[in-house]
Design a protein around this nucleic acid. Structure first.
Lengths: 338, 338
DNA sequence: CTGAAAGCGCTTACAG
DNA sequence: CTGAAAGCGCTTACAG
């Protein structure tokens, strides 16, 4: 990093002069236009960037708040993150927490390259979201200079808030079973973390133990179009299918075209349930409206925020994990039977 | 702000000792357990927070990259922001820019309270998104220590990248007119910035000048459900309506239930077009698929990022504004006529 | 028109 | 077991 001192040496002026010029104070301090030009050019040529830490330290103004850095993935899960942010903001507002939230996107599996020491040191606490298995391994093997909380991931080393993945999988299984269904199917994306596998396994386990067939599993991309195409394929390959679990809400919304094309209406022989992981509200107005396992994303985020507040104050307070319960909402795609 | 020095004085030890203890180095430096406890308690009681600038400055490690702070609003427009982030990341990747992107949410109209001096000084450049009118007034009246670029807002004072709002409004008008439509309607949310009004005005202007009636305007909330309910109301109040412009994609998606309830099918007498402002991809698979004015959100973001790169290097390079063109995509809700 | 010097709050090599 | 001192890179009051 080139500093103001080096520029000063190069330009044969004092650091004071360089600082003045770089801060647009040339005229009020009557620096000669000639000097100004020379310094500006040298600074540009040398690729000068102000050292933000030094600037802030000097200018001070003091800090007022806890700066929390949130690492998240900016892929299709961003939908999910929207509700997460709402939860954070709700907690900040309700508890009047002096928090400043900064988001740092990263690529799945590349958390390590995003968690630079200098970046971590520039915040009071770190919240890690959407960690892939590789990211978790990295975290377990590392030590960080700031408190770190995991969002929706299990860990022996860090505090975390998770959702009840087992219930997310078993609830739809129980419902389909109680409706006398026999031929279940699952439409999912590739699992991005172990919780998704847990959900799927518990759905399969519940189906089996309730006397249904082993679920047929179709894997697709995280787009509405793929949900549509995959559903078509499923209906063609397995016309006996009488209940479907969509592991992501977007897939279920995409599937609707497939049902209407096939003349399948609801209520009817076929039922389906989606895991409501998005910030969309179409589930309530699409045709049919979607029965969903509602994920408590906002509540999880609020809990993370409060946990963070405690950890920042008492570094050694040990790790704490919390499991948030999920709820089921019945709508047209899988109506309640009474 | 309480400093390490104050804690030291209070505890009757040196700042060195306090620093050591606070950084978990008590054992390796053999600080007595007693001293450690005392200092820890005092620190907690006094509410000590490390000064991040000072820590980073000392620990150094140097900076490697430009830190860009993006101010955005975390309301329903977050959908739109997702595509914006993709554009930023694309530009960073393509040009190999050494950028670090941090997001700072703010409330509409409250940009001022989010743009704290200390926060601004902790980045190299600022990108402001979703500014409301009040926010723009604040910006025009202020001076900032870092280069600032406006996303999709007009300004005499700052560089900006905008979309062609006039075309966004006129294109649907021209298309409906060329299809011989006479009774236009608009379904919109409350305008959050002047560009939305421009779009609506140009739609109305185009309708009028092409011999259609003045558009009926319905205002609703930014939810799918509200899009549905408002569309129902529109169809009931104005059964003569033969073309609709949805100012937001989510409203059009919500409306679909209203059409199917009324037995309205596509192609047919009624046509509609939506302004594609979201990161959703259901428009391609819903029934009917949506004809849209496609907003170049990613391209705008990429352009902002490149502009930022230039401004950081040459502070005095003057303001530059760029207008990005939009495209129209015809689908089932308003099929092409040939 | 320009510069020497102090100091922001912290960490750490060094000395005892 | 603990402390005095240097220094990270910058800004700014003060002096000339």
């Amino acid at each position: 990093m080139v500093t103001i001192k080096e520029i000063a040496r190069e330009a044969n002026v004092s650091p004071t002069t360089v600082s003045l010029i770089l801060n647009n104070k040339s005229k009020e301090r009557k620096i000669s236009a000639q000097t100004e030009q020379r310094v500006l050019q040298i600074a540009e040529r040398m690729g000068y960037l102000p050292n933000l830490q030094a600037v802030s330290l000097k200018k001070g103004g003091g800090q007022f708040s806890y700066r929390i850095l949130v690492f998240w993935v900016a892929d299709t899960r961003a939908q999910t993150m929207l509700r997460f942010f709402r939860g954070i903001e709700a907690a900040i507002e309700e508890d009047g927490l002096p928090f400043e939230i900064l988001l740092q996107p990263y690529k799945p599996g590349a958390l390590q390259s995003a968690m630079k020491e200098a970046l971590l040191l520039s915040c009071h606490g770190v919240l890690v979201c959407n960690a892939a298995e590789a990211d978790l391994e990295y975290l377990e093997a590392s030590r960080f200079p700031r408190p770190l909380i995991l969002y929706n991931r299990y860990s022996k080393k860090y505090s975390s808030v998770v959702m009840d993945d087992r219930s997310i999988g078993s609830i739809p299984g129980e419902i389909f079973a109680s409706h006398g269904k026999k031929h279940p199917a699952v439409i999912t994306t590739l699992p991005t973390f172990s919780g998704m596998s847990i959900r799927r396994n518990l759905f399969a386990y519940t189906c089996r133990s309730r006397g249904m067939e082993e679920p047929v599993v179709y894997c697709c991309k995280a787009t509405g179009r793929s949900g549509y195409e995959t559903t078509r394929q499923l209906l063609e390959d397995h016309p006996e299918t009488d209940c479907i679990l969509y592991m992501r809400e977007g897939l279920a919304l995409g599937s609707l075209r497939a049902f209407s094309e096939q003349g399948i209406s609801f209520p009817g022989k076929l039922e389906f349930i989606a895991i409501a992981d998005s910030a969309l509200d179409f589930s309530e107005v699409c045709t049919p409206t979607l029965s969903v396992v509602h994920l408590p994303l906002e509540a999880v985020a609020s809990e993370c925020t409060r946990l963070m507040h405690r950890q920042i104050h008492a570094a050694g307070c040990g790790i704490a994990s919390k499991v948030m319960p999920v709820t089921y909402i019945s709508r047209e795609s899988c109506p309640d039977m009474r």
